[in-house]
């Protein structure tokens, strides 16, 4: 009896892994790294995580979870409320829609597709923030650098996410 309860609790905890990992990555993007020049061009870590889970475990990170992470990010970062959540939701939807395309594709293709999705996300967020914020559009160069950083960082973050995926989720099956 106790065994089954523990087993069930373990299963529930595992189901929260994608949400937890995405949340931690979102917070990680905000912690100071003390590396010169990096604070201005923080990569979009939350986007990477949402993209990853949308491909590999679409069942475990729903729209509601993505929305709440996006809203939390906006409230913490001081960016226009809703802009971060919108981008994450759109990214997730695009990947869900192209599930067949992503199926069993090599990493290079996944990375390339991320570069495309992230480009759309960054551009859309830039437009959203520019339209909503009272200060108007920020210089596009900053955003472009942040985008390049995101694409460059994806293999590293993707590797960590894949580790988390294999260790914590594959065991439960």
């Amino acid at each position: 009896m106790q065994g089954t309860l523990l087993h069930r609790m373990d299963g529930t905890a595992r189901r929260f892994v994608p949400f937890g990992v995405t949340l931690i990555l979102m917070l990680f993007a905000m912690t100071p790294t003390y590396i010169p020049g990096l604070s201005h061009v923080t990569p979009m870590y939350a986007l990477m995580a949402v993209y990853f889970w949308a491909i590999y475990r679409p069942d475990l990170l729903g729209y509601g979870a993505t929305f709440s992470i996006g809203i939390l990010e906006d409230l913490l970062a001081g960016t226009p409320l809703g802009s971060g959540a919108l981008i994450l939701l759109l990214c997730q939807r695009v990947v869900f829609h192209q599930q067949k395309f992503f199926n069993n594709k090599p990493f290079g293709i996944i990375w390339l597709a991320f570069a495309l999705v992230a480009a759309g996300a960054a551009l859309l967020r830039w437009i959203c923030v520019g339209l909503v914020a009272t200060s108007g559009f920020t210089p596009i160069g900053q955003m472009f650098t942040a985008y390049l950083m995101s694409v460059a960082m994806y293999p590293i973050i993707g590797w960590f996410l894949a580790k988390a995926h294999m260790k914590l989720l594959a065991q439960s099956e």
Binding site: T31, P32, S39, H40, T42, L76, T79, W126, T138, M143
Partner: peptide, 10 residues
């Protein structure tokens, strides 16, 4: 300082 909520937007 516990968070640097930089990024390109704020």
């Amino acid at each position: 300082v516990v968070a640097d909520t930089g990024g390109a937007f704020a």
